[in-house]
C-alpha cells in the first residue's frame, strides 16, 4: 500500500474512533441530563408552578427568622423569598453556616402535605457568600435590597 493511502486510512480510523466516542458521549450526556437535571425554584415558583410530588428540585431563599425548630437530628424551618413561604424538613446535621435570615439552598422533594423534604442542605464556606440563584430569586420577588448580604457581613466597604 502506498504511503499516502496508509495515511488516509489512518486518518479514517481516527475519524471513525472519534465519531464513535463522540456519539457515545452524546448519548451518555443526553440520558444523564434527562434523569439528573435538577431545577432550581424559589418558594414563589413552587406555588406558581404546582411542582409535583416526585420531582426532585433545589429550593432556594432565605431561612425565615424564628422558624428553625430542632428535634433530635430532625430540623424544620421555613424558606422564604419574602413573597411566599415553604416549610422544609431535614433529617441530618445542618451545615455550620446555616443561620436564620441567611440564604440557603436545599435539594429534595415535596411530600404529600406540601412540606419540602430536603435530602441535603448545601453547605458553604463563607458567610458572605450568597448563591446567585438565591440572589436572583430575591430580586425577582422584588425583595432584594442588597442588605441581605450586607446585614450579616462584616465586610468593610470595598476600596
Amino acid at each position: 500500500m502506498s504511503r499516502a493511502a496508509t495515511r488516509k486510512k489512518r486518518r479514517l480510523y481516527m475519524v471513525v474512533a472519534g465519531l464513535l466516542l463522540l456519539g457515545t458521549a452524546t448519548a451518555l450526556v443526553l440520558t444523564a441530563f434527562q434523569d439528573n437535571l435538577v431545577f432550581f425554584y424559589s418558594p414563589t415558583d413552587v406555588q406558581a408552578k404546582k411542582v409535583g410530588e416526585d420531582r426532585r428540585f433545589r429550593l432556594g431563599g432565605l431561612v425565615k427568622e424564628g422558624s428553625v425548630i430542632k428535634a433530635g437530628s430532625e430540623v424544620r424551618f421555613t424558606v422564604t423569598d419574602m413573597n411566599a413561604d415553604l416549610p422544609v424538613s431535614y433529617a441530618g446535621i445542618l451545615p455550620d453556616l446555616f443561620r436564620e435570615g441567611q440564604g440557603v439552598v436545599a435539594e429534595g422533594k415535596l411530600d404529600r402535605s406540601g412540606v419540602f423534604v430536603a435530602k441535603e442542605v448545601l453547605a458553604k464556606h463563607d458567610e458572605n457568600y450568597m448563591p446567585p440563584e438565591v440572589a436572583d430569586a430575591l430580586k425577582k420577588s422584588g425583595q432584594w435590597t442588597g442588605a441581605q448580604t450586607e446585614a450579616a457581613s462584616h465586610k468593610a466597604p470595598k476600596n
Binding site: T24, A25, L28, V29, T31, A32, F33, D35, N36, L37, V38, F39, F40, Y41, R58, E107, E133, D136
Partner: peptide, 16 residues
Amino acid sequence: KVSVGAPFFNAVFVPL
C-alpha cells in the same frame, strides 16, 4: 434555573 449534580457526572464520567 437548573443545577447539574453528582448523579449526572457519575452517569457520564464513569462509563468513559
